[in-house]
Design a protein around this nucleic acid. Sequence first.
DNA 1: GATGAATGAGAATTCATTCAT
DNA 2: AATGAATGAATTCTCATTCAT
Lengths: 232, 232, 232, 232
Amino acid sequence: MLTSDEQNTAQRARTDLAKDQRRMSLLMAALDEFFEKGFSAARMQDIAKRVHLSKGTLYLYFDSKQALFKALIEEVALPTLTTTLQQSIGDQPAPAALKALMQNVTRVIRHSPLPRIVKVIIADGKAFPDLVSFYRTQVLDRVFTLIDSLLQKGVQQGHWYCLDTALSARLVVAPILFSVIWRMVFEADEYGLPDQQAKLDLDALLQLHTNNLLLILATKPELGSQPEAHHV
Amino acid sequence: MLTSDEQNTAQRARTDLAKDQRRMSLLMAALDEFFEKGFSAARMQDIAKRVHLSKGTLYLYFDSKQALFKALIEEVALPTLTTTLQQSIGDQPAPAALKALMQNVTRVIRHSPLPRIVKVIIADGKAFPDLVSFYRTQVLDRVFTLIDSLLQKGVQQGHWYCLDTALSARLVVAPILFSVIWRMVFEADEYGLPDQQAKLDLDALLQLHTNNLLLILATKPELGSQPEAHHV
Amino acid sequence: MLTSDEQNTAQRARTDLAKDQRRMSLLMAALDEFFEKGFSAARMQDIAKRVHLSKGTLYLYFDSKQALFKALIEEVALPTLTTTLQQSIGDQPAPAALKALMQNVTRVIRHSPLPRIVKVIIADGKAFPDLVSFYRTQVLDRVFTLIDSLLQKGVQQGHWYCLDTALSARLVVAPILFSVIWRMVFEADEYGLPDQQAKLDLDALLQLHTNNLLLILATKPELGSQPEAHHV
Amino acid sequence: MLTSDEQNTAQRARTDLAKDQRRMSLLMAALDEFFEKGFSAARMQDIAKRVHLSKGTLYLYFDSKQALFKALIEEVALPTLTTTLQQSIGDQPAPAALKALMQNVTRVIRHSPLPRIVKVIIADGKAFPDLVSFYRTQVLDRVFTLIDSLLQKGVQQGHWYCLDTALSARLVVAPILFSVIWRMVFEADEYGLPDQQAKLDLDALLQLHTNNLLLILATKPELGSQPEAHHV
DNA sequence: GATGAATGAGAATTCATTCAT
DNA sequence: AATGAATGAATTCTCATTCAT
């Protein structure tokens, strides 16, 4: 008689809940592999092995490698983001909301799969233009819209001056993307010693960024000194 | 009957100069393929075909696909950068130098291969940790050091206030990286019409960024309002 | 409509036993291909096809062509030999044992894969010096030692005279190797009509050889007529 | 002005003599490569490089790799042999002739290309059945016939008894082939130290073999103890 | 005559996908 | 549901051969 550890066949997922969990764990395994190897170099077998399942089982949940990639973008990116960000803003005055947002961002960068998804999309998006388009409209544009609204709210509330909130929203996001990329690319967690010189102080950077933003937004632009802003 | 143009054997690169040019054209072809498909999905044959050569010929110039990638990073990234940036600063006062730098950056983003190289490194760097390390120390750190020096110079010259020039250098660069990534990932030039909505107004963004920077740097920080900055 | 025999997917080897058998059949197929074409010219696909498998399946059993070659030498040469020869000698008096041995040799030459392995090692050994060394020490030296012991035993038992049993062991083996090479190289069984002129009468040759040996060994050497023997 | 050493183009072979020499040096280079790598794994470029010529030049002398192999067997094997052996026998009495022959054999094994040719034929002959057939009839059969004649002469002269001179000729040759194979396969000259244990004392072996032969041939066979010999 | 750049057929190897158990 | 043996298309890389200079 074998204990479950000794069997070489994994537990079956019988209930819908168990199947959903298995599906999700496969998606996260895929994310890790895609993140580390890239879509093309990632092996279906390795993805399955990460959750102690066989190749064949992976195909019970996803029709193909491409389908797996698509599901990853569609099912993980969106929920992760909306869950995390929407709650950041709430009812507070705009400056407080901006500060809260930036702190949430720090947490998301550290603890959610989103940064890895961003890296995967940058790396392999060209093979999936529909998905990239989906991601941009469903995820990124929402983020920019959210920030845009926040900036407008601050202007309306009399806290801030901002002539081009759409463009400024991009500048709000830029250091966040910078941090994400830097951590994903230059700070190897995996093997070998991460280059200590390469370590980015995430908190300090985003703190300084936040301070800069608050300063800029609080400053009344002199007429003519701002360029005529075109939006994105 | 074939005219000489219709032969199926390419002109031979006989002189050292011709060979260097051929090598360089292969590197640029590789960059394009790596950029569009990723290292793993790019096919050696397609790289060769881009310059109307056979795969066999490609192997006369590079021992392997990996060697091709390495040569790309080592031989293209570094010269492109140093050539382009070092000239930007010159002898001008710091604020003028910063403006000049940002304008040069716009040109580099539009016309040099560097943005594509950045995308390639983000996408495929994990397979070449040595190269990533090389790139960070030889290219990126130089850029940061250059900007850091500029900021310090501005402070010494009495134009600016800046408590943490190293960290601020990152914030100078962040919107540049943002623009690069945005253009590389979300503005497909290749097939079909790029999503017009996705177009980023590069000039406006960097212009606004520059103005913001100049404003921040010109502002004397109130004591205690800045976080203790840790650098990168 | 296909009957089960006409499927294009082979039976699966599910049990360990079935896998061992499949592995062995692949080894024998490899031996045949290596024997006929040489290591370098043999094609993995042809080896697989000999046992009605695809090349992909071959790689389930052996990591590479080199690994296949190594397994062939290590797993087939040694067992074949020890199984066949050790039983030849037994407890009989030395002359009877020598006769028995030579008769077994005839059978081995005719019916075991050993002659083909010998040819393969001669042909391709230079690419695998470790294996050649292994083969010499594990197979050949054992054979020589066995014969050496037999000769010594004959001397001790008073049947024979032999001043240099080690060297004589080589002379015992020489006509065997000659026969093997001759059959492997000059008597093509495969295609086309073997040159009837080239046929070697294996039994007669080894019978004559045995008689010669018995005569020589039974003859007391005159002093000084033997060279000072150096052994191998 | 370049001295001849510094040119990167070899001296032209203008005279027929020079061309013949160049052709011969290419053949010997091919022999060395075929011997070490086997026909299939040998590279035309390496053969040319051995004599400091380019691939292209090699093709001026031989139409193809196969043609090179054929020329090697046809042009080198035959002359080498006939030159060396025919002179061994001369007019002496049979026993003296046999001794002389065996001493010549030692020299041939050590200093002529013949042993390497033998190895090459064993290794790659299967791909060139015509050549093997040619080699057997033109080279080997001549050798056997020569020895056969010698044995018959010894019998006629009253020195020897030999019921089956054809078969015995094979036994005369067997230890020679053994020595050749042993040296070619188990005594690596190339890299690293050859296994000292593997060294065969060629002189001693052939000396002992000669003594044995003389003994056997001098012994009158008892009636019925010899098998009815079939010849080859 | 000599060269070596260019070519592309060919071989080893990988891996997404299928499917019998 | 889960498995992993089997498959073969696809890709990297090699090397015999050609041919313009």
